[in-house]
């Protein structure tokens, strides 16, 4: 079990393929929140949440407000690759120690992760009810004007998972080794043009 906030040591010691569970603070951010956060930061303005040392969750949850507060219904990961163009700058500016997502991310993101000391945890896409069981509380929300999926939700996780270390802090990626294997499988299938 790993707890957020995490130290650089915590994440550098993780190995590709490790299966772990996660506890502590995570913030969701998808396309629109990435855009807005980077726009503010580039203008030198303040972003109303602090990701440093914590977990960035690529997720647009279903939440309900029962009048007394937010209740989480479902919260699986979204496709991380949509944030490929923005993530290297996002990691350098906001310094998360971990990203939780699905499907993996590009080489420039892997490089920014290696530089800063950040890992990518793959959680099973679509497994939103299992995911929600590992999130004990919604602590708050920012930028709700972006709509429920695109807002930034602060979550407190407890034994969230199982997640797989799919991109480590040393420049290695399961998705890259799968891509290599797929290339040689395609040759065997006869589709290598």
């Amino acid at each position: 079990m790993l707890r957020s906030p995490m130290s650089e040591n915590d994440v550098r010691s993780l190995r590709l393929g490790d299966e772990v569970t996660l506890s502590g603070t995570a913030f969701t951010a998808r396309d629109e929140a990435h855009l807005r956060a980077l726009e503010l930061a580039r203008k030198g303005e303040r972003v109303p949440f602090d990701l440093e040392g914590k977990m960035l969750f690529h997720c647009g949850p279903i939440v309900e407000n029962d009048g007394e507060g937010w209740r989480l219904i479902a919260a699986g990961p979204t496709t991380s690759a949509r944030m490929n163009e923005m993530e290297p700058d996002f990691i350098r500016r906001f310094k998360p120690r971990a990203i939780i997502g699905k499907g993996g991310m590009s080489k420039p993101t892997l490089e920014a992760m290696r530089e800063h000391g950040c890992v990518y945890f793959a959680f099973t896409g679509g497994a939103a009810v299992v995911a929600a069981q590992g999130i004990k509380e919604i602590k708050g929300v920012h930028w709700l004007d972006l709509g429920m999926p695109e807002a930034v939700w602060q979550m407190e996780m407890q034994d969230f998972g199982p997640v797989i270390v799919a991109m480590d802090a040393h420049g290695n990626s399961i998705f890259e080794s799968v891509a290599n294997a797929v290339r040689s499988n395609l040759k065997a299938i006869g589709r290598d043009r």
Binding site: C59, G60, P61, I62, I73, A74, A75, G76, T78, T124, G125, G126, A127, A128, V129, V130, A131, A132, Q133, P162
Partner: peptide, 19 residues
């Protein structure tokens, strides 16, 4: 995880995926 999620969603009558 997928199979566990399907069972949980059906039992709790909740959307199996947030999307």
């Amino acid at each position: 995880t997928i199979l566990e999620n399907i069972e949980l969603a059906e039992r709790k009558r909740l959307p199996m995926c947030q999307d």
